[in-house]
């Protein structure tokens, strides 16, 4: 029996979120947990990972799957030329999702597994296209019994126009703090792709302001943005971060997405990692591997010295 099934289907709907971000929705009835991703191909060369941002329409109709995609390079540019009705192919969902209170597993730290949904007070902090998966997370937290007033969302972006999903979060009754930094230098431009411009500072500042009431942080975005949050958290705060590494097989055999030094595979054991896993990572915020497997330092990336 084939486990890794592929679904080839027309795009049901495309919604423009910002100039460079669009939400693509597919009519696909799959169980998707927040933090999981799909692999998407247009059959023109290229298959790329995208986080699931929703699994229903605004009117509550089930049986849909959405991803919010930022236009970055060749593949995503081609997607932006597509229309509803055009055919794509999807495999997944893949990966270990975010933790939902009341549903601990063997990796959940004891202190966290004991928190009841009513006492869970998380901040959801996302940079750029890291925000959409946090929207699905917010919905699941509410379903699990976490009161909306306990949850706070922080959105970081290069500019006001890049702050994603404000309406969606406030629509759930979750306050949203936007942390925008205008895009006026190269490092800010690189920030959302893995480097750190001043955007890290703004996300971290926003977190400091609201973190006092918090007992858990979820973050999703570029490594350096997530790393900048750690010193701003009250001491001993438990967290989960959603990681991005170069995905090829997405089924745990090729090793492309493995982190150092433990070999944690972001497509399997990730993308959502616990603090105790994050603390073991040597590559976090320092380097990542390109399509060839070569190590690329974030510093070099910022300086525009891309290797392979």
């Amino acid at each position: 029996m084939i486990k890794d099934k592929r679904t080839t289907l027309p795009i049901a709907r495309i919604v423009e979120e910002t100039e460079n971000v669009r939400t693509f929705t597919f009519r696909m009835d799959v169980k998707a947990a927040p933090g999981q991703f799909i692999m998407l191909t247009d059959f023109k060369g290229g298959e790329k990972p995208f986080s699931i941002s929703d699994n229903m329409l605004e009117d509550g109709k089930n049986g849909y799957l959405s991803v919010s995609i930022k236009r970055i390079g060749d593949f995503t540019r081609r997607l932006f030329d597509m229309k509803a009705g055009d055919i794509v192919s999807i495999r997944g969902p893949y990966g270990t999702p975010f933790f939902i209170p009341g549903k601990p597993d063997e990796k959940t730290p004891e202190v966290v597994s004991k928190i009841k949904p009513a006492d869970f007070r998380p901040v959801l902090c996302g940079g750029g296209f890291g925000l959409p998966p946090l929207y699905l997370l917010a919905k699941r937290l509410l379903e699990a019994g976490v009161p909306a007033k306990n949850i706070k969302a922080v959105g970081a972006g290069r500019s006001e126009a890049d702050l994603l999903f404000e309406q969606q979060f406030t629509g759930l009754g979750i306050p949203y703090t936007g942390a925008a930094e205008s895009l006026d230098d190269v490092s800010a431009a690189a920030s959302l792709e893995g480097g750190c411009g001043r955007i890290c500072g703004t996300a971290a500042e926003a977190l400091t302001e609201i973190a006092t009431e918090t007992n858990f942080v979820y973050a999703s975005g570029p490594d350096l943005m997530m790393k900048s949050l750690i010193p701003q958290m009250p001491q001993d705060t438990e967290y989960q971060f959603l990681f991005e590494r170069y995905m090829k097989c997405a089924i745990g055999i090729c090793g492309s997405c493995a982190t150092d030094p433990g070999g944690i595979r972001i497509c399997k054991e990730g993308p959502a990692l616990w603090r105790h896993q994050v603390e073991q990572l040597e590559d976090f915020g320092v380097y990542r591997r390109t399509a060839s497997g070569a190590i690329e330092l974030f510093e070099n990336r910022l300086a525009g010295r891309d290797r392979a």
Binding site: K3, G46, C249
Partner: peptide, 22 residues
Amino acid sequence: DGPVVAEVEGGMLNAMGLCNPG
């Protein structure tokens, strides 16, 4: 370019294309 793997009945097709860092 992807897709580089496809599960088939009883196995797997792969065309990774010898990706390696040199």
